[in-house]
C-alpha cells in the first residue's frame, strides 16, 4: 500500500526536502520555488502570487530591523544591511518553497497505513460534506444550523471517498524530474552563493 502510485509524490517530496532546508542559498531557493510552481501548473492548479509577495515583504522587513552585515544604504535612519536582507529573503523563500513542496507531496492523495489512515480518510469524507453543506450555515443562527448539520451528518453514513489516482508512470517521471531539478539547483547555487550567514 505504501508503494501505491498515490504515494509517489510523497516519497519524491521527502527526497527533495533536504535540498530545500539544508544550507540552501537564496539563489537555489528561488530556483526551487520556480520548479515547484511549474509542478503546480502541470497539475492544472492556479498560482497565486499575492500571498507570496506579502510573505516575502513582511518576513524580510522584520528581519531588516536586526542589522547584520554590510550597510548597503540607509532608509529613514534604518540601516539596510546585506546580511539581514539575505537572511530575510532566505527565510521567506524557504517557507514558500516548503508550502509548495508539501502541496506537491499531497497531490497524489496519499494513503496512510493503519488506524490513523482509516480515521483520516473518514475525516476527509466528512470534510467534503461540510464543504458541500456550508451554505446551510446561516449567519443569524450559526449555532442552531451548525447543530442541525452535525445531527444530519451523523445519520448519513459516508464511506471513504475513493479518488482516482493519476497515471502512475507519468507521476513517477514528473516526480523524478522534479527531484533532479531541485537537487540540481541546490548544487548549482552551492558554490556560487556568496558567503556569510
Amino acid at each position: 500500500m505504501l508503494i501505491s502510485s498515490r504515494n509517489i509524490p510523497m516519497a519524491a517530496g521527502l527526497v527533495m526536502l533536504p535540498a530545500v532546508v539544508f544550507h540552501s542559498s537564496v539563489g537555489s531557493l528561488a530556483a526551487q520555488v520556480i520548479i515547484f510552481m511549474i509542478l503546480q501548473i502541470i497539475r492544472g492548479e492556479r498560482i497565486r502570487m499575492l500571498p507570496n509577495i506579502i510573505m516575502i515583504v513582511s518576513v524580510t522587513a522584520l528581519n531588516l530591523l536586526q542589522a547584520h552585515g554590510r550597510v548597503l544604504f540607509t532608509l529613514w535612519s534604518l540601516p539596510i544591511t546585506q546580511g539581514a536582507l539575505e537572511i530575510g529573503l532566505r527565510k521567506a523563500l524557504t517557507l514558500i518553497a516548503l508550502i509548495y513542496l508539501s502541496r506537491f507531496m499531497v497531490s497524489g492523495k496519499p494513503r496512510f497505513p493503519g488506524r490513523i489512515g482509516m480515521l483520516l480518510s473518514m475525516q476527509f469524507s466528512y470534510y467534503n460534506q461540510f464543504l458541500q453543506h456550508r451554505l446551510s450555515l446561516k449567519p443569524g443562527q450559526i449555532v442552531s444550523s451548525l447543530d442541525a448539520l452535525l445531527v444530519r451528518m451523523e445519520t448519513d453514513s459516508p464511506d471513504a471517498v475513493e479518488a482516482a489516482a493519476g497515471p502512475w508512470k507519468l507521476t513517477a517521471v514528473i516526480s523524478a524530474a522534479a527531484a533532479a531539478a531541485v537537487w540540481g539547483a541546490w548544487l548549482y547555487f552551492k558554490e556560487t552563493a556568496g558567503c556569510c550567514g
Binding site: 524557504t94 517557507l95 516548503l98 508550502i99 508539501s102 499531497v106 496519499p110 490513523i116 476527509f124 470534510y127
Partner: peptide
C-alpha cells in the same frame, strides 16, 4: 487526543503544509 492529532495531520494534508514551518 485522537481529535487533536487528526486536526493537526488533516490541516497539514488539506492545506498542503505537511513539511513546512506552517505545520
Amino acid at each position: 487526543s485522537l481529535l487533536v492529532v487528526l486536526k493537526v495531520l488533516g490541516q497539514g494534508i488539506i492545506h498542503g503544509t505537511l513539511v513546512s514551518y506552517v505545520f
